[in-house]
Deep mutational scan, measured.
Amino acid sequence: MQNSHSGVNQLGGVFVNGRPLPDSTRQKIVELAHSGARPCDISRILQVSNGCVSKILGRYYETGSIRPRAIGGSKPRVATPEVVSKIAQYKRECPSIFAWEIRDRLLSEGVCTNDNIPSVSSINRVLRNLASEKQQMGADGMYDKLRMLNGQTGSWGTRPGWYPGTSVPGQPTQDGCQQQEGGGENTNSISSNGEDSDEAQMRLQLKRKLQRNRTSFTQEQIEALEKEFERTHYPDVFARERLAAKIDLPEARIQVWFSNRRAKWRREEKLRNQRRQASNTPSHIPISSSFSTSVYQPIPQPTTPVSSFTSGSMLGRTDTALTNTYSALPPMPSFTMANNLPMQPPVPSQTSSYSCMLPTSPSVNGRSYDTYTPPHMQTHMNSQPMGTSGTTSTGLISPGVSVPVQVPGSEPDMSQYWPRLQ
């Protein structure tokens, strides 16, 4: 039975679970980093996980050691009161100082060594604690504590007292930064006198190289990059290397530039699409467009005044059976039934097929058609009795279509119309 579990990581490298990497692998990681390889490249070359490479390099940059820390136990506290007071002093002298600059000053002034120097995250935590204590304490208590930490007896009751030896409130920041720059020169002199001055200088240079600022491109470089971006948004590694040799930039910087440029292009394309949609959409909808001609068919113009009344309900007709019959029939052209047409008796099958359309009241044959006459024609229609054979009435077949029909004066039988409509 094995005491430890061995495995293979996602890159194909072998590791022992819970145990640190061998010293030979750690040394190779540092050597590759000094030669300029990126952590992701080191991870692929040595088949070590990216997190492990970053952790080893980060500890090497901070402490200069590649040895693993002790497994188990607690780390001794490195942010001692003396170190905290120095950090507060540096922050007062130059409020814009960075944590890694404070760390360098602690090393250069001999406050800490490589073994007990606090990390950048520890210094940031100390600065946050100082800021929170400043908010919790009152103004007087804060000034007393700062005077105690600074070891001075001057008056701290006013704002300019934060910067000793100065009279203009805006000047101390520059003086403090100048003092810090002077301390940086002392850093070089002190570290050069040490035993491991060369190694420390190499480590600091490598650290500065990794902690780079934003790349500033010249106009020629920007023009070359934009020209390549117009050709393709995704250049391959050969195109990037050719462009890197042409404009004297690292291939990694060119790759990052193209990634950022593609993101910018997507944002601009989104804005262009929004403007295009806004320009195509009308600002207001016309009133006429809300009524579609496919839904509402136009009603033909009436030929006679009587045809303006298109349904039985508008003429005072309360018989719903006839109203439904007229509205359900398709529109037909106007025609006239003459008196000489043969009077065919209704076929029983045809009569039964339209039995649902006729009223059940037996008085329908005896009703006159003056009910369908509009009010303004009552006088004219009353002067001509319906009993004469020459009287013409208008029957409504569908809305908007008038059918003048000659009705025999002897017997106005409704059943004569249905064979004609089939």
Score class of each variant (00 low, 15 high):
Q2H: 12
S4D: 11
S4G: 12
S4I: 11
S4V: 11
H5L: 09
H5F: 08
S6W: 15
S6P: 10
G7L: 10
G7N: 13
V8N: 05
N9C: 01
N9F: 01
Q10V: 06
Q10S: 11
L11I: 01
L11N: 04
G12D: 02
G12H: 02
G13N: 01
V14G: 06
F15M: 02
F15E: 00
N17M: 15
G18W: 02
G18D: 01
R19A: 04
R19Q: 04
P20N: 00
P20K: 01
L21F: 02
P22C: 06
D23W: 08
D23I: 14
S24W: 07
S24A: 13
S24I: 12
T25M: 07
Q27I: 11
Q27E: 10
K28E: 07
K28N: 08
K28L: 08
I29P: 00
V30G: 03
V30C: 06
E31V: 08
E31I: 06
E31A: 08
E31H: 06
L32S: 02
A33D: 05
A33N: 06
H34S: 11
H34A: 14
H34R: 11
S35H: 12
G36W: 01
A37F: 15
A37P: 01
R38H: 04
R38M: 02
R38C: 05
P39T: 08
C40L: 06
C40M: 07
D41F: 05
D41Q: 14
D41V: 07
D41S: 07
D41L: 05
I42S: 01
S43T: 04
S43Q: 00
R44V: 05
R44A: 06
R44Q: 06
L46I: 08
V48A: 04
V48E: 04
V48M: 01
S49C: 07
S49E: 00
S49Y: 01
N50P: 14
C52M: 00
V53P: 00
V53F: 01
S54T: 08
S54W: 05
K55M: 03
I56G: 04
L57I: 07
L57M: 04
G58I: 15
R59L: 07
Y60A: 00
Y61K: 15
Y61Q: 06
Y61D: 06
Y61T: 05
E62W: 06
E62N: 06
E62F: 03
T63R: 03
G64W: 01
G64P: 03
S65M: 08
I66V: 09
I66M: 05
I66S: 06
R67A: 15
R67S: 09
R67H: 03
R67Q: 12
R69C: 06
R69S: 04
A70K: 15
A70F: 07
A70H: 09
A70T: 10
A70V: 08
I71V: 14
I71Q: 15
G72C: 06
G72N: 05
G72I: 02
S74V: 03
P76Y: 04
R77G: 01
R77I: 02
V78E: 00
V78K: 15
V78S: 01
A79F: 03
A79M: 14
P81N: 07
P81D: 07
P81Q: 08
E82D: 10
E82Q: 11
E82H: 13
E82L: 14
V83Y: 00
S85Y: 10
S85K: 13
K86W: 07
A88P: 00
Q89G: 13
R92V: 12
R92D: 14
E93G: 11
C94H: 13
C94Y: 11
S96W: 11
S96P: 08
S96Y: 10
I97M: 15
F98W: 09
F98A: 08
F98M: 05
A99S: 08
W100I: 06
W100Y: 09
E101R: 13
E101G: 07
I102S: 04
R103Y: 00
D104C: 10
R105Q: 13
L106V: 03
L106W: 04
L107V: 11
L107N: 14
S108A: 11
S108I: 13
E109N: 13
G110S: 09
G110A: 09
V111Y: 09
C112T: 08
C112L: 06
C112A: 06
T113S: 13
T113C: 13
N114V: 12
N116L: 11
I117N: 15
I117V: 15
I117W: 15
P118E: 00
S119I: 03
S119D: 00
V120R: 15
V120N: 14
S121N: 00
S121T: 00
S121V: 03
S121R: 04
S122Q: 00
S122L: 03
N124A: 02
N124K: 05
R125M: 02
V126I: 15
V126A: 11
L127V: 14
L127P: 01
R128E: 09
R128L: 02
R128M: 02
N129V: 09
N129I: 08
L130C: 10
L130P: 08
A131N: 08
A131M: 11
A131T: 08
S132W: 10
S132V: 11
E133N: 12
E133V: 09
E133T: 11
K134Q: 11
K134S: 09
K134E: 09
Q136G: 11
Q136L: 10
Q136I: 12
Q136K: 12
Q136F: 12
Q136Y: 10
M137D: 10
M137Q: 14
M137C: 14
M137S: 13
G138N: 13
G138D: 14
G138I: 14
A139R: 13
D140T: 13
D140Y: 12
G141P: 15
G141A: 11
G141K: 10
G141Y: 10
M142F: 14
M142K: 12
Y143T: 13
Y143E: 14
Y143R: 12
Y143F: 12
Y143V: 12
Y143Q: 13
D144M: 10
D144K: 11
D144R: 11
D144S: 11
D144L: 09
K145Q: 11
L146W: 14
L146G: 15
R147N: 13
M148F: 10
L149M: 14
L149A: 15
L149I: 09
L149C: 15
L149V: 13
N150Y: 06
